[in-house]
């Protein structure tokens, strides 16, 4: 496959290093622009200061499969195969970790995965109670009792179809 020239090293917040193909890393806009900025330099290490290793690993796994599937299914069927993989990919991620992952993906500016993770979070919280959603995101309720009652009144269409979770 590709020679070592086509590899780049991504360094997580803990200092752990991941060697990745350029084809994979170029999906991360931030890595791409950093590499373009220091073109010609032999040092191909990109520090992702705020991203934990576990998230770096997840993101690399996603884009590695993304690139492979795209190569394999050039004539068509790529989208279906990718959907299949995405489902499998999301199953192995803890619901709590989705938040960290979306932050990491947002920071690395990787649009395809960003949509996938946002959809996964949306799916997870959509039928949960308000209390659950607050707890999940660590949000403090900043409404007064009157304000809350007013919003409830304004939106009678917000019926209760909530799961206990």
């Amino acid at each position: 496959m590709a020679s070592t020239d086509d590899k780049v090293i991504l360094k997580s917040s803990e200092g752990e290093c991941f060697e990745v193909d350029m084809a994979v890393a170029s999906h991360l806009q931030i890595v791409k622009s950093v590499l373009e900025d220091c073109e010609g330099s032999s040092d191909k290490v990109v520090s992702l200061f705020i991203v934990e290793a576990k998230y770096v690993a997840m993101i690399i796994e996603y884009y590695k499969n993304y690139v492979e599937l795209k190569e394999k299914h050039e004539e068509g069927g790529f989208e279906e195969k990718l959907k299949e993989f995405e489902k499998q990919f999301l199953e192995q991620i803890d619901k709590k970790e989705l938040k960290g992952l979306v932050m990491a993906v947002n920071y690395l500016n990787a649009p395809a995965l960003f949509d996938v993770v946002c959809t996964a979070i949306a799916k997870h919280i959509e039928n949960k109670s308000v209390e659950y959603v607050r707890e999940y995101f660590g949000i403090v309720n900043d409404f007064t009792a009157e304000e809350e009652a007013q919003i409830r009144e304004e939106h009678r269409w917000a019926y209760d179809g909530v799961n206990d979770d």
Binding site: K123, E126, V130, F143, H155, A158, Y159, G161
Partner: peptide, 15 residues
């Protein structure tokens, strides 16, 4: 990404 009929309760999460 959240379907419209769940957004009502999402408005109650915070300002």
């Amino acid at each position: 990404m959240i379907p419209a009929h769940f957004l009502g309760s999402m408005r109650l999460v915070c300002k």
